[in-house]
Design a protein around this nucleic acid. Structure first.
Length: 463
RNA sequence: UCCGGCAUAGCUCAGCGGUAGAGUAGGUGGCUGUUAACCACUUGGUCGUUGGUUCGAAUCCAACUGCCGGAGCCA
């Protein structure tokens, strides 16, 4: 008998069709009228399929009456119009075969509510809940939409290395990668480990960004994007940070900051439009149960023009409001409260801040004509904060060398990066988008730990 | 890492110096094309750990562990 996904059964309204469904039991309700209702979910959509299992089935007393949440079953039967009020169709079972039972006294996911904190302790089972099923489908749709967006715009998907020896960037603690015996480290002199005998012959770590490598390919093929895991060993204990997260990093040759901003805005709108079309049911679930302004927020982002504002103008706006706990002055990095003021009170929509002081931004950002600011841009969203950070890259060799010197960096470490400026340099731009922050935005989930299947944070890499 | 909060039944929580509670889940019975089913009865606890104060601590104090919220770092 042909297997169907529950999603397809609903979409195609396959009444009178004989078919087979595989899935997990959500609940069972017994009727003394001589049959049981089973709610079965197979992950293909939020909705369960109601199964009618009559007590005339051979294994009714032995098997079906022992089906509790979490059990796995194969059901064969016919789709019929439902006599009940809450669903149009249901599956009248001709057979119910049990793959595996689930002990009601020890299986943690029963019908009652369970907190997200508790679910994190059982991350191997939380995918079976409505919420995490919906998150997974949204995450999948956003991945697909990301590839579609960039492919349609002639970007090449590029895989940059996860293990890196460029100890650059300055910002961000790195995870060390080593095969050295931790009990017996080879030392040059006391306190100085001899990394030459390590696997790569020098210090290596997990990447904090694929940007520098992506630039090399953008400066050969025009347009590329990366989409892969990224690692930060910061001791960040917040609802917006992960030690392992996924980042989307497009890089474009022959593009200035404005083109970069346009790409970022188009990308975000494309993603949300894709979701509004493809994951309607899941979004409505989030809007109803997780964050009741979600659809409003998403529609707002899609329908508005992002505010584009220089850092200097933002400081002027913020200076008029004196009620911040951190006083505002030019040259400082903006605090969360300042970003929130701009996105949630002043403009009530996404704000792109540009042209930050160069002293608070990394060496690779292009220095503006004023000599004080760089061609940077951050996309700030209401409730989410910074979701995208990008810039036009410094393409002038001498200025880039000066910047490295100012920051006390040894330019020999960047010889290959500087070669791009030595041989046929071009203006180019790009940005990085935190994929889990995007999912946070699109689902309304409050904690980023619930947007990735198995979160890695300080003190926890379980599963 | 800093500031604040929380940790009590499988789950969600109340109790805040004097015999450990509710809802829900589980069990039993009743009822029912049910759908967070409903009604009655019922099982279920070293009150996070260690120490202290007290005649007496789930309750007050301290340390520790874990988690949550905010801040910093950032995507």
């Amino acid at each position: 008998m042909q297997q169907f996904l529950i999603r397809d059964i609903y979409q195609k309204q396959l009444v009178n069709q004989k078919l087979c469904v595989n899935g997990w039991v959500k609940t069972r309700r017994d009727s003394k009228g001589g049959f049981s209702f089973l709610e079965v979910n197979d992950g293909s959509c939020l909705k369960n399929l109601q199964i009618i299992a009559e007590n005339s089935l051979g294994n009714y007393h032995d098997d079906i009456l022992n089906l509790f949440p979490g059990s796995s079953v194969k059901v064969e039967g016919t789709i019929v119009r439902s006599l009940g009020g809450n669903q149009e169709i249901e599956l009248k079972a001709e057979s119910v075969n049990v793959y595996g039972f689930s002990d009601v006294t020890t299986y943690p996911l029963q019908k009652q509510r369970i907190s997200f904190e508790k679910l994190r302790e059982i991350a191997h089972l939380r995918a079976r809940t409505n919420t995490f099923g919906a998150i997974t489908r949204v995450r999948n749709a956003l991945s697909f939409a990301t590839h579609r967006f960039f492919q349609e715009r002639n970007f090449y998907y590029l895989n940059t290395p996860i293990i890196t020896t460029s100890d650059c960037e300055g910002a961000g603690q790195l995870f060390r990668v080593t095969t050295l015996d931790m009990q017996n480290l080879p030392m040059n002199k006391p306190g100085n480990i001899n990394s030459q005998s390590d696997f790569f012959g020098e210090e290596a770590s997990l990447t904090v960004s694929g940007q520098l490598e992506a630039e090399t390919y953008a400066c050969a093929l025009g347009r590329v994007y990366t989409f892969g895991p990224t690692f930060r060993a910061e001791n960040s204990n917040t609802s917006r940070h992960l030690a392992e997260f996924w980042m989307v990093e497009p890089e474009m040759a022959f593009a200035d900051l404005m083109q970069d901003i346009t790409l970022a805005e188009d990308y975000l709108k494309f993603l949300i439009n894709h979701l509004l079309n493809q994951c309607k049911e899941d979004l409505e679930f989030f809007n109803l149960h997780i964050e009741n302004t979600l659809l409003e927020q998403l529609n707002n982002i899609v329908n508005c023009d992002f505010v584009i504002l220089t850092y200097t103008d933002a400081i002027k706006i913020l200076s008029k409001h004196k009620k911040f706990s951190f006083p505002v002055n030019w040259g400082m990095d903006l605090q969360s409260e300042h970003e929130q003021f701009l996105t949630e009170i002043e403009f009530k929509k996404p704000v792109v801040l540009t042209d930050y002081p160069k002293i608070i931004k990394p060496f690779y950002m292009r220095v503006n004509d004023d000599g004080k600011t760089v061609a940077a841009m951050d996309v700030l969203l209401p409730k989410i904060g910074e979701i995208i950070g990008g810039s036009q890259r410094e393409e002038r060799l001498d200025i880039l060398q000066n910047r490295l010197k100012e920051l006390g960096q040894n330019e020999n470490n960047y010889w290959w990066y500087l070669d791009l400026r030595r041989f046929g340099t071009v203006p180019h731009s790009g940005f990085g988008l935190g994929f889990e922050r995007l999912i946070k935005l699109c689902t309304g989930m409050g904690n980023i730990r619930d947007t990735i299947p198995f979160p890695r944070v300080p003190g926890n890499a379980k599963f």
